[in-house]
Write a protein that binds this DNA or RNA. Structure first.
Lengths: 349, 349
DNA sequence: TTGTAAGCGTTATCAG
DNA sequence: CTGATAACGCTTACAA
């Protein structure tokens, strides 16, 4: 008898078969899996053996349908800029998958239908089809329609980054301002008194926070902050314009002896500008720092000092908050700021 | 009556409610969705309106349980090297999610329990729990236990990259050797007669193919290929050792006037070596090329010529082959090599 | 502690 | 072309 185009089962073992093999009812097998303490040890043993023997694993669809738990979380992939790829797609995503796996959860990756399409539509689809227990959002803006939307939907969610006040949410973030302040202190300890800054896309909260942290710490320490009057533009700054901006500052009246950049890729532009001005990168010439600690840092010469994000702790914290909501725990909506680590390398040390 | 900790339904609309609203049986609603041609146009209209009105979408778990189709594919995230992050995690993954979305499929990301853990165990779990219709594997090795394993399992799968012969599989790959041959021709057209090569991790098939393509084309054109006697080591080459290797070649008897690198990050090491030898990168000095066309290329000075991978066509081709298997079409196991594009920039042009 | 009965929301089968 | 009935595999009451 030929199998039809749709085969409801791939020949996978079912709970019924396990029950038969162990000589118990299928309910006992279910209990052995979901509430082991309710099964007599000796029975449990027999069932466990049968499960192992047959390589049984519950059908997740059946389980989800019955219990309501999807054991899956959705991650809305941030839009990517071709000139400045989102580092979250690499390290953070892996950390998230690992953290989820440790909690018995899977990660479903999704994106808006088109780059310019409304991300809330993609969210609606996923939620309406009940494919996930909760959502993880990243790269959250001050006024973020996604946050407002999922909050209205009532789906459990957490965000990496936070909106402005007024939108209750569970968030995890890094202390962007404190991280940049630590950079300033590091450079000050090296004797630098005039420090330059290269940022971009300051409309992004984390970029704005980095600049703010930089300025505040310079002020506090009585250092001269040398920054572009008109900060270089949007996310995808053409490298040439960033280089020009830095060169201008290096030729200005308060020539900085060190430069902090808002990202590792921007630091690369600083390297170029410094060299174009006939100066050297490093403690002897112009010290440079980046942000993110991407692998690029170690391939530069000198290697780039950078701020490392605690990606695994972030992922773990996000997941803990998300699952608490999924379980129905009453958790106050609040967030946590995790500390970063300054990795000092040749460019400043 | 308080809701228990598990709420089987989130209050989502069910097919029953739609049926009632449209004044038809729930079966008709199902038909309207899955076999519209079997429903009278006027009824279809009424049902569609009710669906839109109520924002109904079928529960994917129920649908999966009943039909056997999970509408989800699994992507086994490649292990990442901290010194040379896998570019597949960024652009390719996005392309894959988009291609899947266009086919009504979602992407489930998964990884081995631990970096060193057996990836086949992770595959088994996913398959046994029937969470996916098929698998996408990337970074396939010549002797790949994952390929052998999923083939034995009988799960539909495709691979980005291919094993050695003898393991039937559906694969999509780029023409690594042809891409590097094109690089050589490009450099030859610029007048270069002695061309250096920097590779790494030659045990990886794609890295080996790039070197092979380089050597073959140099031979064909009668050019002098200047390569390291002992190619630099494993995936995570300490940048310093790669730089040293290139510097040695630049001081050797057949000083190359151009350098092809096996990746963009390796090209960065070439830049450093060239400059350390007091030479300039570019058509006037030592021309340099990379591989992958990562965003880094545009941030270098001069900007880096590189080989661009057709990530979206690759993702589309992979998905087409995978879904054909899922549908049960009898497709001969074979592969396709997609062409790359050489993006010429200042480092060689 | 274990077995029995019911139902989660959907789609396939088969009458009308 | 439509509507009743059964089943997918599992878990949660409840009864034994």
């Amino acid at each position: 008898m030929p199998e039809g185009p749709h085969r409801p089962r791939r020949g996978a073992t079912t709970i019924e078969e396990v029950a038969r093999a162990a000589g118990v009812s299928r309910q006992t097998v279910s209990n052995a899996l979901n509430a082991p303490h309710r099964v007599r040890p000796e029975t449990l043993e027999r069932v466990t053996a049968a499960i192992r023997e047959l390589g049984y694993q519950p059908d997740q669809s059946a389980r989800s349908l019955r219990s309501g738990a999807r054991r899956t979380i959705g991650y809305l992939a941030p839009v990517d800029d071709p000139l400045d790829p989102n580092p979250l797609m690499a390290g953070f995503l892996e950390a998230l998958v690992d953290a989820a796996g440790a909690e018995g959860q899977r990660v479903l990756l999704f994106r808006p239908a088109a780059p310019s399409a409304d991300p809330t539509a993609a969210i609606d689809e996923l939620v309406a089809a009940r494919q996930v227990d909760g959502l993880v959002l990243a790269d959250v803006l001050a006024e973020d329609t996604r946050i407002a939307h999922v909050a209205r939907l009532g789906v459990p969610f957490v965000s990496f980054g936070r909106t402005g006040p007024g939108q209750p949410q569970h968030w995890v973030d890094i202390a962007n301002d404190a991280a940049m302040a630590a950079v300033v202190r590091h450079l000050a300890a090296l004797g630098h008194r005039r420090i330059g800054y290269l940022g971009a896309a300051e409309e992004l909260p984390w970029m704005a926070a980095r600049r703010a942290g930089f300025l505040a710490e310079c002020r506090r320490l009585g250092l001269t902050a040398v920054t572009d009057v008109a900060p270089v533009g949007p996310l995808g700054v053409p490298p040439s314009s960033a280089v020009a901006a830095v060169r201008a500052l290096l030729r200005g009246p308060d020539r900085p002896t060190a430069f902090a950049a808002g990202s590792d890729l921007l630091a690369l532009d600083v390297y170029e500008a410094v060299r174009a001005e006939g100066l050297a990168v490093g403690p002897g010439g112009v010290a440079v720092t980046g942000f993110h600690d991407t692998p690029l840092c170690r391939h530069l010469h000198p290697a780039l000092t950078s701020v490392r994000l605690p990606l695994r702790p972030i992922a773990a914290a996000l997941l803990a908050r998300l699952l608490a909501q999924v379980r129905g725990d009453v958790v106050p909506t609040e967030g946590v700021e995790l500390p970063t680590e300054l990795v000092v390398r040749g460019s400043s040390g």
